[in-house]
């Protein structure tokens, strides 16, 4: 970096919804400070840079790259490698790049099934010839190339080395700003950076810590979907039978959802000592199901418990909403014969 040159900032979206870009803008007037401190080196959402521009940068030219979105196709992966090469600090920004998020739920099924749903079997689709995207396609102007659609969605750190993770779907503005402050302090004043691999912009306790709802000992006899009950205000949602993943989720968001009666979905991901957020929450939920009594025969008890469990309609989607790609499971077994995961 030359004496007067400002540090270079990049932001890129891979497989994502765009909410992460919006979240940056959500820091409001502080965006002006960002502009003042940084030079934008690459930011497809707001500035007209081309991939070839990035390819032209020397390695490590970008000081900080905020990479959001999961790795869904070959283009995502290629860009991840490119930006890794060109960046000093690569941040997995937002839940998709950190742990797969919503796109990774398609790991429960196959690429083929996903394409079928999107391009063929959908009431709003009009595709009588059954045309599917092809990696290569001849047009009069020549051959077109489309990225290869992967079978399995991966998190950013499953394809390249990642320096920091900034969780959230999307990350909350105060947390974004806090992280930017650290980065700026480090770049401009030589302040220390957090250790590599750190999860920044979040805390090391669970959402419950920030959640003001009153909590008691828990025994749950059935679960409810949000539309089925109006939760009693002031009382822990999980106790009321709403599957709140707050206890298994890293705090930092300020417990915004549970405070307004919407149970935590778990977007900030697992805590430090948890390997698999979904499994951990399942284990916790299983621990507080309170039916039956010791006099019951095992199969009778099993039926009662099963009846309670059955009130959770989409366990995979509920417990692995954000963490599928990063979980111990990674994806459903393609070779399994259980129908859904079966490869076609």
């Amino acid at each position: 970096m030359t004496e007067n040159a400002k540090p270079k900032l990049a932001m890129y979206w891979a497989s994502s919804c765009g909410g992460c870009e919006i979240s940056i803008l959500n820091i409001h007037e502080k965006i002006l400070i960002v502009d003042e401190v940084f030079d934008i080196a690459f930011f497809p959402c707001i500035a007209d840079f081309k991939t070839k521009d990035v390819k032209g940068y020397p390695d490590g030219y970008i000081d900080v790259c905020l990479f959001n979105g999961a790795i869904r196709n070959s283009e995502n992966e290629e860009m991840a490698h490119l930006l890794r090469q060109k960046s000093k600090v690569l941040v997995a920004y937002g839940s998709c790049s950190y742990e797969g998020c919503i796109p990774a739920l398609s790991n429960l099924t196959t690429k083929q099934a996903t394409l079928d749903t999107v391009f063929l079997d959908n009431p709003t689709i009009d595709n009588p010839e059954g045309i599917l995207p092809q990696p290569r396609y001849e047009v009069p102007e020549g051959e077109l190339e489309l990225p290869v659609f992967y079978n399995t969605v991966k998190s950013l750190d499953q394809v390249v080395d990642v320096d920091y993770y900034l969780p959230g779907c999307p990350p909350e503005p105060p947390q974004i700003w806090a992280v930017l402050e650290i980065v700026v302090a480090a770049l401009l004043e030589g302040a220390p950076l957090p250790p590599k691999g750190a999860i920044v912009g979040a805390r090391d306790v669970a959402v419950c810590e920030e959640c003001p709802l009153e909590k008691h000992e828990k025994t749950i006899n059935r679960f409810y979907r949000p539309y089925e009950i109006i939760p009693e205000p002031g009382l822990c949602l999980l106790e009321q039978g709403l599957v709140c993943v707050g206890p298994a989720t890293r705090a930092g968001c300020g417990a915004l959802c549970p405070q307004v009666g919407m149970s935590c979905r778990g977007c900030y991901g697992p805590l430090d000592d948890v390997e698999d957020q979904g499994a951990k929450m399942l284990s916790a939920i299983a621990s507080v199901i309170g039916v039956g009594d010791p006099s019951m025969e095992e199969d009778e008890l099993e039926r009662e418990i099963q009846a309670v469990v059955d009130t959770i309609p989409d366990p995979a989607g509920t417990f692995y909403r954000f963490s599928m790609a990063h979980s111990l499971l990674r994806r459903a077994n393609l070779n399994g014969g259980n129908g859904k995961g079966e490869a076609k």
Partner: peptide, 20 residues
């Protein structure tokens, strides 16, 4: 330091060893 007080463990212990 890290317990967030969700109280899920409170009813678990077969030896009543957990207090809140």
């Amino acid at each position: 330091e890290l317990c967030s007080g969700c109280r899920i463990c409170n009813t678990m212990c077969p030896y009543n060893a957990i207090v809140f």
